[in-house]
Design a binder for these strands. Structure first.
Ligand SMILES: [Mn+2]
Ligand SMILES: [Mn+2]
Ligand SMILES: [Zn+2]
Ligand SMILES: [Zn+2]
Lengths: 142, 142
DNA sequence: TTCCTAATTTGTAATTGTTTCAATTTAAGA
DNA sequence: TCTTAAATTGAAACAATTACAAATTAGGAA
């Protein structure tokens, strides 16, 4: 999933995933909220409109989407998985001040070099951590 | 901490950390076991020789060492922190087959580029995941 | 050397994110 | 419409980590 989708049901069907209202809602949520939410953010937000939603369904659906390689999981936080509906190769910046996770649009030039080690590489994660531009500005001349 | 230490007490004192037997043992362990252990590996191994060791002490000591920037924490695993006593900039490969975390000695060429975004970068984590050379060899021509 | 005290260690309990599981419901093909 | 395998649900289990208060101790002062 890379650009905003118009037909989530079709998208699921095309990927061999059975269509359910819960999956549609979670998929739409990920597509519309590109701030790398965690499972609980998704659960709490969607629970408002669908009070019978189960936390387990959120976890199950995220696992399903991951196993079909339609979303990615980030381990940039030390305590929880964050989910990314944009699967184009890109890296991430975590602001330790405000907690925001910002996309960094650089490509990984290591790959060829690392592949020469003989390992098979399936995933590349580039995580930068520090203080974001906005938080730095707010801090001012402290 | 980068090269093997000979005097752990001196090392702690030099860094303004009070010397205790527990801290010495944990520090030695990290220095001798460079396989990026998690807190529980450290706890279980050291508990053999010092049965009164508390899990909390392991966590506390790891936090102390981290806050003095003497060790690093890796979020390469999805379920636990792994600790690295080598703080030279380097990246990591996680084999999803055998679980081993292998050092990748490449430098990050992004930094300048990412810094132009205006963020302050304190940490750089490069994580590669896949199947390591040895596991690939064992799999054979499957 | 002994004393003092703030810092450290310890064990237990609490918390948090995630997984397991069995019962109920449901999507979608026959 | 019927059927059934798959999905959803809620509760309980789990694992990593943190909080906390009581007991111990390192290291400086007397
Ligand atoms: Mn992203
Ligand atoms: Mn390392
Ligand atoms: Zn920020
Ligand atoms: Zn391997």
């Amino acid at each position: 999933m890379t650009v905003a989708l118009d037909d989530y049901a079709l998208f699921l069907r095309k990927n061999g995933i059975k269509v359910t209202p819960q999956r549609l809602e979670i998929l739409r949520y990920l597509d519309k909220n590109r701030n790398h939410p965690n499972a609980d953010m998704i659960y709490r937000d969607l629970k408002k409109k669908n009070p019978s939603l189960s936390r387990t369904t959120v976890y199950n659906t995220l696992d399903t989407l991951r196993s079909h390689n339609l979303i990615h999981a980030l381990t940039i936080s030390e305590s929880e998985l964050r989910f990314d509906s944009i699967i184009n190769p890109h890296q991430h910046f975590l602001c330790k001040k405000c907690g925001e996770i910002i996309d960094i649009e650089v490509e990984c030039p290591y790959l060829k070099e690392v592949l020469q080690g003989g390992h098979r590489i399936d995933e590349v994660h580039g995580y930068f951590k520090g203080v974001c531009k906005d938080c730095l500005a707010k801090e001012g001349g402290s």
